[in-house]
Design a protein around this nucleic acid. Structure first.
Length: 427
RNA sequence: GGACGGGUGGCAGAGUGGUCGAAUGCACCGGUCUUGAAAACCGGCGAUGGGCAACCAUCCGGGGGUUCGAAUCCCUCCCCGUCCGCCA
């Protein structure tokens, strides 16, 4: 959510921002409705005041007749007030629909344009490898070493589900351990979050919990949804609360399973583990003061880079263009890892994403902070970033670390937990 | 899942139809006293929206209802606690 006052005072800039982001929102209409509502609210206030006065005067009415007369007057005033209130509710519903569709403001450096305008900012420390042998993709490698059972997953839950097996299981746990250790060293509080969340939390973070285009699975007969990311649970953690400024920034990381319907994604590059309905992810999340959020956003990006540098996987960092930003994001950096199995045309695949949502989510979730000795509260800024999404990291590891003899090396930093340095036998 | 008890200002905790936005205590802020601090005493102190201000409106878990009037009565949902059941 944007600040309504800001919209009223900067309608043109807000409209331009919506246009840049490819969002159809009639800002002028919103301003008109909001202005009407404000006037009506004044009238409702005045009627409330009068009605309250009448009610208070009933106690000292001199007889029953006067009492009845004043009751009638009270009834009349409340009725008039309710009528106007309904008018407000009607206008407000229309204004609210426009309001909710407005995306966050945008960082001045974000490239303007559609997906193709996104800008590469940098490359990771690991050079793209030249293979002297035919490259296999992760599905072939996983089959060869019995690491993933797609057929089994399909049988029990449908296409897009899978069993991890053998070293893939060890790799998943190793990735979690490695990432957690690194983040805890940076002051993140580790959590394992619920995998389900109530509808209001899901919506507050910015996902649509139900309906035809939803990306979210929901539980029948319960107001519960399978989370698409721990951003939902971590962001919702302090919904409705006023945090102490001295406690900021609060940096959390959360392990959760992530469930996505991937509605409408059929046909896109989605072989194997790339686009699945369930995976595990370690997510970073921060609540900050407004002036801190840019720095924390950079930190999130740097941590993502450190993780993939440590894993020895080549990647590029992308500054996402306005047309490709989700509603809550003010600015977004993606890491795209080199996945040689994807083929010449599209060898980089998204592995992480770090967004600064400024106060957009906080306003919707009502998360504020208060500075001791100062009056009033302000909205915090929220940030989220992928530390590691296991399924995609797994693709990158399998494909980048494959050897001429068909074995797969285990990245150095994971060997402690995997307990071996190579998947498959060289003999 | 069942029974009962609860959800009120930063916290604790009164308040069961009418000057209640709400006693009291703690915390907090200002002052007196003190070399300084503590204690004691005096004063202040909820949030949001509108207004330069006086002031006004709204807010007692969420939503709905009854009433001239609701923190208070009714319905409903959510959450917390205790006990019982079930269970890894």
């Amino acid at each position: 959510m944007l600040d309504k006052r800001f919209i009223l005072e900067n309608a043109e800039a807000v409209q331009q921002n919506c246009d840049h982001r490819g969002v159809k929102a009639d800002v002028a209409r919103f301003v008109e409705l909001e202005t009407q509502c404000r006037a009506l609210r004044q009238e409702v206030e005045e009627l409330s005041r009068q009605a309250n006065q009448v009610s208070k005067s009933i106690g000292n009415a001199k007889d029953d007749a006067e009492r009845e007369e004043r009751k009638e007057e009270g009834r009349r005033l409340r009725e008039e007030k309710d009528g106007k209130q309904q008018e407000i509710d009607r206008l407000d519903a229309e204004a609210g629909a426009i309001y909710r569709s407005m995306p966050n403001l945008t960082h001045p450096e974000s490239p303007i344009g559609d997906e193709a305008s996104s800008k590469e900012l940098s490359r990771g420390g690991t050079e793209v490898r030249r293979f002297g042998f035919p490259v296999q993709d992760h599905v072939e490698l996983a089959g060869q070493h019995d690491l993933v059972d797609f057929e089994g997953g399909g049988r029990i839950a449908g296409h897009g589900f899978y069993f991890l097996k053998n070293e893939a299981v060890l790799l998943e746990l190793a990735l979690q351990q490695f990432t957690l250790e690194l983040l805890m060293g940076e002051g993140f509080v580790p959590t394992i979050t619920p995998d389900l969340a109530r509808g209001d939390i899901v919506a507050g973070v910015g996902f649509i919990p139900r309906g035809p285009e939803t990306q979210i699975y929901s539980i029948e007969n319960f107001d519960l949804n399978l989370v698409a990311t721990a951003e939902i649970t971590l962001g919702g953690l302090y919904a409705g609360e006023v945090l102490d400024a001295d406690d900021l920034p609060i940096k959390l990381c959360g392990i959760s399973h992530c469930f996505r319907t991937e509605a409408g994604a059929a046909g896109r590059a989605s072989r194997g583990l790339y686009r699945v309905h369930q995976f595990t992810k370690v997510e970073m999340f921060a609540f900050t003061k407004p002036e801190e959020s840019e720095a924390v956003h950079q930190q999130f990006r740097d941590l993502e880079c450190r993780i993939f540098d440590a894993l020895g996987i080549p990647y590029r960092v992308i500054d996402i263009a306005t047309g490709d930003l989700g509603g809550p994001a003010y600015r977004k950096f993606d890491l795209e890892a080199w996945m040689p199995g994807r083929g010449e045309a599209d060898e980089f695949g998204e592995v992480t994403s770090a967004s600064n949502c400024t106060d957009y989510q906080a306003r919707r979730l009502d998360i504020r902070y208060k500075t001791k000795g100062e009056k009033g509260t302000s909205y915090v800024h929220t940030l989220n970033g992928t530390a590691v999404a296991i399924s995609r990291a797994m693709i990158a590891i399998l494909e980048n670390y494959q050897q001429a003899d068909g074995t797969i090396l285990v990245p150095d930093v994971l060997r402690r937990w995997v307990g071996k340095d190579r998947i498959g036998s060289t003999g």
